[in-house]
Simulated scan of single mutants.
Amino acid sequence: MPTIITHAAVPLCLGLGLGTRVIPPRLLLTGIALSMLPDADVLAFKFGIAYGNIFGHRGFTHSLLFAFVDS
């Protein structure tokens, strides 16, 4: 099962594989951060938002709409 850490594996592997001439370090770090962002929804638990809520884990932040807004 993917975790917030393993989400970064794809941009990290692409960056390391293609090198800094193709993917600059700043773009690589941005890709890593944006790939981890949807799992920041676990912070909702601290605010009392239930898992099954639209803003709970794997809710809105895991939607296509959020992906387009985030980009």
Rank of each mutant, 00 (worst) to 15 (best):
T30V: 09
P25Y: 06
A40W: 09
G15I: 07
L34W: 02
I32V: 15
Y51K: 14
L12S: 10
V10E: 00
L16G: 10
F45P: 00
L27A: 12
T61Y: 01
I4K: 10
I32N: 01
D70V: 12
L16K: 04
F68H: 08
P25T: 06
L28Q: 09
G59N: 02
H57F: 11
V69S: 09
L29K: 06
G48L: 11
F55Q: 06
S63I: 01
L34F: 11
D41K: 00
I5M: 12
G15S: 11
M1K: 12
P2S: 14
H57I: 05
A8N: 04
V10P: 01
N53H: 15
L28A: 04
D70M: 15
V10C: 01
L43D: 02
H7G: 10
T20D: 05
L14M: 14
M1I: 13
L29R: 04
I54C: 00
D39K: 05
Y51S: 05
L43F: 13
L18F: 15
S35R: 01
I54D: 07
S35K: 01
F45S: 12
I32L: 13
G52I: 00
A8F: 03
P11V: 11
T30G: 00
I4W: 13
T6P: 11
V69K: 06
A8M: 12
G17M: 08
M1P: 14
L43H: 01
S63F: 01
D41W: 03
A67V: 03
A40T: 13
I5R: 13
P24M: 08
L65C: 01
V42E: 05
L12A: 08
K46I: 11
L64K: 12
R21G: 12
P25V: 13
G17T: 06
C13A: 15
